[in-house]
C-alpha cells in the first residue's frame, strides 16, 4: 500500500475545511478574494484554466503511481516483473505533445491578461503613489494628499509610482494588480475597479524592518462620494456643504491636530504656556526681557521657537517652518484671539 499518498488526500481535505473563511461576511472564493476590478476575472480565468489541467494531471499521475505500485509489486515466486518495451516513440511524443499544446494556451491567455493589466489606458485619472519605508502616500491631481487610497468606482485610474528609498511593490489582491516600485525611476500600473468596498493594499517587495506593516486601506466609492472626499482632502477647511471655514474654525482645527498636547485652552500650564487669555499680554523671558504677545511674536515663535522662551517653561517646541500656509497661521492667530485676552 502506498500510505503517503492517502495521507496527502487527507491533508487536502483538512486544508480545505480550514480554509473556508470562518467570518461569514468575508467574501471571495476558496482560492481568491473578491473580484473587484476588470483585470480580476481575466487573471482568474487563466488561473482556473491552469488549475483544472493541473488537477487532472496530478490525479492521473497519482492514480497511475498507486495502481502500478500495487499491481506490479514484487511478490516472491509470483511476480518478479515482465518484459515490456524500454521506450515508445509514439507514447513519448504524445506525452510531450499534449502538454506542449496545453501550455501554449496557458502562455497565451496569461500574456493577454498581462498586457491588459500592463497597458494603462489614455486619459485615466492619475494618482501619484509615493512609497517609502514604511508607508504610502497618495497624491491626487487636485493636490490632495492622503495615506489612504480612495478610488472612484468604474473609472480608469493610473498609478504613477516612485520610491524614496528602496524597492517596494504595490499589490491590491482584490484587484489582482501588482507592480514593483523601483527607486530612481517611475513605474506605472492601472485599475478599473468594479465593486465598491474597502480593500487592503500591501507592500510585497521586502523593504526592511516594518515591511509587514506597510499596508494602506483602499476605499472604492461612487463618483460623488469620491469627488467630495478628494475636494475636502485638497482643502481640509471646507464644511459639509463645501463652504469655507472661518479663520477661527481653521485655527481650532489646527490646534486639535498640532498644538493641543503642549498648550491648553483652559489656562492650565502643560508643557508650554496656556493660550487662554494670552493674546495681547506682556511675556517675560528667562533673561528678563519682555515683549507683547502679538501677531509678529506669534509668527516668530512658531518659526523659531527657541529664540524667546517664556520664563519658567522649557525650550521644548520644534520649529513649524514650512508646515503651515499663511492662511493657516492667520487662522491660528484668529483662534488665539478668540480665546480672550
Amino acid at each position: 500500500m502506498n500510505l503517503p499518498i492517502l495521507s496527502t488526500l487527507a491533508n487536502l481535505v483538512q486544508a480545505a475545511q480550514v480554509a473556508v473563511p470562518s467570518d461569514p461576511t468575508a467574501e471571495g472564493t476558496f482560492w481568491f478574494p473578491v473580484q473587484a476590478s476588470t483585470l480580476a476575472p481575466k487573471s482568474d480565468w487563466t488561473f482556473y484554466y491552469i488549475y483544472w489541467i493541473s488537477a487532472f494531471f496530478t490525479a492521473l499521475i497519482v492514480a497511475a503511481m498507486i495502481f502500478m505500485a500495487i499491481r506490479y509489486r514484487y511478490r516472491k515466486g509470483v511476480w518478479d516483473g515482465e518484459e515490456s518495451p524500454g521506450h515508445g516513440l509514439a507514447l513519448e511524443l504524445t506525452w510531450s505533445g499534449i502538454p506542449f499544446l496545453l501550455t501554449i494556451a496557458m502562455w497565451y491567455t496569461g500574456f493577454k491578461s498581462y498586457m491588459y493589466g500592463d497597458t494603462p489606458p489614455p486619459n485615466g485619472y492619475e494618482i501619484q503613489v509615493k512609497a517609502r519605508q514604511w508607508n504610502w502616500e497618495f497624491i491626487y491631481p487636485n493636490g490632495a494628499k492622503s495615506t489612504e487610497l480612495h478610488l472612484p468606482v468604474e473609472q480608469d485610474v493610473t498609478f504613477v509610482m516612485s520610491s524614496a528609498d528602496v524597492l517596494h511593490s504595490f499589490w491590491i489582491p482584490a484587484f489582482r494588480v501588482k507592480k514593483d516600485i523601483v527607486p530612481g525611476r517611475y513605474t506605472k500600473t492601472w485599475v478599473h475597479s468594479t465593486l465598491e468596498g474597502q480593500y487592503t493594499l500591501f507592500c510585497t517587495e521586502y523593504c526592511g524592518k516594518d515591511h509587514s506593516q506597510m499596508m494602506a486601506q483602499v476605499f472604492v466609492e461612487d463618483q460623488a462620494t469620491f469627488d467630495g472626499w478628494v475636494a475636502k482632502q485638497a482643502n481640509p477647511y471646507l464644511d459639509e456643504d463645501g463652504q469655507p471655514f472661518t479663520p477661527v474654525a481653521i485655527g481650532e482645527k489646527i490646534y486639535g491636530q498640532h498644538c493641543f498636547a503642549c498648550h491648553s485652552i483652559d489656562g492650565s500650564a502643560v508643557v508650554g504656556p496656556s493660550w487662554k487669555g494670552s493674546w495681547g499680554t506682556e511675556r517675560t523671558f528667562e533673561n528678563g526681557d519682555t515683549r507683547l504677545f502679538d501677531e509678529n511674536y506669534f509668527k516668530e515663535s512658531l518659526l523659531d521657537p527657541g529664540a524667546q522662551v517664556v520664563k519658567g517653561f522649557p525650550p521644548a517646541m520644534t520649529s513649524y517652518r514650512g508646515v503651515f500656509k499663511d492662511s493657516e497661521i492667520d487662522g491660528l492667530i484668529a483662534y488665539i484671539k478668540s480665546l480672550g485676552n
Binding site: K42, I50, T109
Partner: peptide, 25 residues
C-alpha cells in the same frame, strides 16, 4: 513524484504572466 508534480504544475501559474502578477511575492 507527488511533490515534483505539485511543485512543477504550480510553476505553470507563475510562468503565465497574467497569473504571476497576482501570485508573485
Amino acid at each position: 513524484l507527488w511533490m515534483f508534480t505539485v511543485g512543477g504544475l504550480t510553476g505553470m501559474f507563475l510562468g503565465s504572466m497574467g497569473t504571476d502578477v497576482h501570485l508573485h511575492d
